[in-house]
Simulated scan of single mutants.
Amino acid sequence: MSEDEAWLLISVSTAGAAATLRVQVWRKLRSLGALYLQQSVCVLPARDKVVREVRRLADRVRHQGGQARVLRIAFTDPAERAQIVAEMNAARDDEYGEVLERLPAFRQELETERARGRASYAEVEESEADLDRFRTWLGKIATRDYFDAEGGAAARQAVAEAAAELETFEAEAMSIEAPAEPGPARPARRLRAVDEQ
């Protein structure tokens, strides 16, 4: 069975285990991009990294008093597989959409600071931290975007445009806070008198 055909069917029960285990399981499976078919049962593509992470999670669940079952499966109906992929892509597109919804506020903040004449190193530093959060968020979504959801390209482009806008803002801040030093003074040219030839 090829990597594109193999899937993991994951069933987890944390009944009888510490309450925190349920949250850990939910967070881990969500971070991997699991698609829930029903409560406590989800699927993920059987990519190498995913298989390792799910095995570790299942071991942790068992060691902490829960139950976990991980089965390698293949869809026999291509339409069913296509539906699962479409649902996973829709979930990623929703996440990419959140990035796109929040980026205008980042760009507006730059414009507001520019309009106030507050292009400064402190503002650049704060905005860089915000942009790093967007990049990290985008990277996490991309990690679980197994089937190249359509929204990914638009989100990556929007983050790149925000980065370019921040570069421009930084250049403005630098020109205000550290204006270019004048070059060395040039010696005055002596003008020759017309009759000196």
Score class of each variant (00 low, 15 high):
residue 170 E to H: 03
residue 62 R to N: 08
residue 79 A to G: 06
residue 60 R to K: 09
residue 184 P to L: 08
residue 169 F to D: 00
residue 130 D to Q: 13
residue 113 E to H: 14
residue 158 A to R: 08
residue 29 L to A: 13
residue 138 L to W: 13
residue 76 T to V: 06
residue 188 A to S: 14
residue 126 E to I: 05
residue 79 A to Q: 11
residue 126 E to W: 15
residue 5 E to S: 15
residue 48 D to N: 04
residue 138 L to R: 02
residue 21 L to D: 09
residue 197 Q to I: 11
residue 130 D to V: 05
residue 19 A to F: 13
residue 16 G to N: 13
residue 78 P to W: 08
residue 67 Q to Y: 12
residue 49 K to T: 12
residue 92 R to W: 06
residue 187 P to A: 06
residue 160 A to Y: 07
residue 2 S to I: 13
residue 139 G to N: 15
residue 123 E to K: 00
residue 194 V to Q: 06
residue 33 G to M: 08
residue 31 S to I: 09
residue 96 Y to L: 03
residue 108 Q to N: 07
residue 19 A to Y: 14
residue 163 A to R: 11
residue 156 R to M: 00
residue 139 G to T: 15
residue 21 L to W: 12
residue 21 L to R: 06
residue 135 R to E: 12
residue 14 T to P: 07
residue 177 E to D: 06
residue 173 A to Y: 10
residue 17 A to H: 10
residue 188 A to K: 15
residue 180 A to K: 13
residue 114 R to N: 01
residue 118 R to I: 04
residue 86 A to T: 05
residue 63 H to C: 05
residue 111 E to L: 07
residue 26 W to I: 03
residue 170 E to S: 01
residue 48 D to F: 01
residue 136 T to V: 06
residue 154 A to F: 00
residue 96 Y to K: 02
residue 40 S to R: 11
residue 14 T to V: 14
residue 151 G to H: 10
residue 28 K to C: 06
residue 41 V to P: 00
residue 27 R to F: 08
residue 5 E to R: 15
residue 190 R to E: 15
residue 56 R to K: 14
residue 178 A to C: 02
residue 176 I to A: 02
residue 18 A to I: 09
residue 7 W to V: 11
residue 24 Q to N: 13
residue 11 S to Q: 13
residue 91 A to T: 09
residue 27 R to M: 07
residue 45 P to C: 07
residue 42 C to L: 10
residue 197 Q to G: 05
residue 40 S to P: 12
residue 72 R to Q: 11
residue 16 G to Q: 13
residue 162 A to F: 10
residue 135 R to N: 04
residue 153 A to D: 07
residue 103 L to S: 03
residue 185 A to Q: 15
residue 43 V to Q: 08
residue 18 A to D: 14
residue 55 R to D: 09
residue 63 H to A: 12
residue 45 P to G: 04
residue 119 A to C: 04
residue 193 A to E: 09
residue 23 V to N: 07
residue 39 Q to W: 00
residue 2 S to M: 12
residue 52 R to H: 08
residue 32 L to P: 15
residue 101 E to V: 03
residue 153 A to S: 11
residue 79 A to P: 04
residue 4 D to T: 14
residue 20 T to C: 01
residue 98 E to W: 08
residue 98 E to D: 10
residue 124 V to M: 00
residue 197 Q to N: 07
residue 54 V to T: 12
residue 107 R to N: 08
residue 192 R to N: 08
residue 47 R to T: 03
residue 19 A to M: 13
residue 4 D to R: 14
residue 18 A to N: 14
residue 66 G to V: 11
residue 94 D to P: 02
residue 72 R to N: 04
residue 128 E to Y: 04
residue 146 Y to C: 03
residue 143 T to N: 08
residue 58 A to Y: 14
residue 2 S to N: 15
residue 116 R to E: 12
residue 168 T to I: 02
residue 112 T to V: 09
residue 113 E to P: 00
residue 181 E to F: 01
residue 98 E to T: 10
residue 167 E to A: 06
residue 103 L to F: 05
residue 125 E to K: 11
residue 54 V to S: 05
residue 111 E to C: 03
residue 190 R to I: 14
residue 195 D to T: 04
residue 163 A to F: 05
residue 171 A to N: 11
residue 90 A to S: 11
residue 140 K to E: 15
residue 74 A to F: 15
residue 132 D to M: 08
residue 55 R to M: 06
residue 92 R to E: 05
residue 27 R to H: 14
residue 46 A to P: 10
residue 148 D to G: 00
residue 123 E to D: 10
residue 116 R to M: 07
residue 115 A to V: 10
residue 121 Y to F: 07
residue 176 I to E: 02
residue 11 S to K: 13
residue 99 V to Y: 01
residue 48 D to I: 00
